[in-house]
Amino acid sequence: MMVLLAFLVGVLVGVGVYLVLQGSLARFLLGLALLSNAANLVVFLSPGLVRGHSPIIPLGAKVLEPPYADPLPQAMILTAIVIGLGVLAFAVVLAYRVHQVLGTDDLDELRGTDR
């Protein structure tokens, strides 16, 4: 499972970078969304996967004995997903306005500010 998910991160990063480098506004946003999901998966995977052991102290025991699934990375991802959603929502609006001003999907036209 771990290896499979690691490959998935690789695929997501690969596709994300490809889309970002296409030079098109819409694809750029899609690429960013994929990359941000890849980053979330990395956080999820980094302490290792444990299946079938929820992090609940069993009846009668005083402490949690490993192995157990670490809940903290999931809390971190939850935060990161919410932040990512907010930022991407803003980005969609920003991209829409940029498209209105530029009249094109071509990111090379952004050079206009440097003059």
């Binding site: 941000s36 980053a39 990395v42 956080v43 999820f44 980094s46 930022v87």
Partner: peptide, 13 residues
């Protein structure tokens, strides 16, 4: 920010 997030995740790992 994505790089930072990955760094923080790996550090925790």
């Amino acid at each position: 920010s994505l790089f930072y997030l990955m760094g923080a995740g790996l550090l925790y790992g």
